[in-house]
Amino acid sequence: MRHVCVVCGYVYDPAQGDPVAGVAAGTAFEALPDSWVCPECGAATEMFEPVEEAGA
């Protein structure tokens, strides 16, 4: 599921991963390493919320 950073609005999309941080496409949000932070603002994963997908 996609997750949005409530501080800056960055959306983590498992389909994309976070290639700059070495997170492969297909990595679930829950499987991100503890050291992972929001690439745009540096917030930890507690600052993310699931995005309810329309029609999902």
Binding site: V6, V7, C8, G9, C41, A43, A44, E46, M47
Partner: peptide, 11 residues
């Protein structure tokens, strides 16, 4: 405007 900020790691 977002209601959530962080100062360093303080929410």
């Amino acid at each position: 405007r977002s209601a959530t900020l962080k100062v360093s790691d303080i929410g």
